[in-house]
């Protein structure tokens, strides 16, 4: 088993909480893991990425090779495209559809969507909207994990356990909202692919 995942977004959006939950689930499953993050300059609203590598044997490189990623999991649509050189030919792009527009030359969103639609395996999800609808806008990242959950090679229960572990000290209500976000994201993907 090997899953190489590029996480992407904009500095401040919190892609690292995604890495933490998936990482917890991976370690809990007895797998090996390496996760390279971006700290520093670009965290001030620039583009940020994290390389998350999970495997049943020791992981060598901290960076995913170009053409090697099984998935790009992005919480911003344009950012999902920035890392396409990392995607393997049968890899998945799973991305939030709500743009984070903090630059003056952000492209027309239709053009971004067109490019995403050209990718063989893609899932486009309005995670912001879904999180709002379940009354927990902060849980957008967990919706994204849910949307990707069937392709992570991890037990769904382990992801739930990861959420309980990471949000546990914030109380039951926060935990339950995030669990609901995870589940809703997963259901969305099921329906998206049926279409």
């Amino acid at each position: 088993m090997k899953k190489d995942i590029i996480l992407s977004g904009v500095g401040g959006q919190g892609i690292l909480s995604i890495a933490t939950v998936i990482g917890y689930a991976a370690i809990d499953s007895g797998l090996f893991m390496k996760q390279a993050e971006v700290h520093g300059m670009s965290q001030r609203g620039g583009d940020v990425q994290s390389h998350l590598r999970i495997s049943d044997r020791e992981v060598c490189s901290d960076l995913i090779p170009f053409g090697g990623a099984d998935m790009i999991l992005s919480i911003e649509p344009m950012e999902s495209l920035r890392y396409l050189p990392y995607l393997s030919s049968d890899g998945w792009v799973i991305t939030n559809s709500t743009p984070f527009n903090n630059i003056s030359n952000y492209p027309e969103i239709e053009d971004v969507m067109k490019e995403i639609a050209r990718i063989k395996n893609h899932i486009l999800i309005d995670a912001d909207d879904i999180a709002k609808n379940i009354g927990s806008p902060m849980s957008m990242n967990m919706v994204m994990i849910g949307a990707a959950s069937d392709y992570l090679g991890l037990d769904f229960g382990r992801l739930e356990k990861g959420i309980k572990f990471i949000f546990g000290r914030k109380g039951d209500e926060v935990v339950n909202k995030n669990l609901e976000a995870l589940k809703t994201g997963r259901e969305f993907t099921g329906n998206f692919l049926k279409k």
Partner: peptide
């Protein structure tokens, strides 16, 4: 490898 589509704009900090 796939290339980065032209629409992608730089996003400086």
């Amino acid at each position: 490898v796939l290339s980065v589509p032209q629409v992608v704009a730089t996003r400086p900090p």
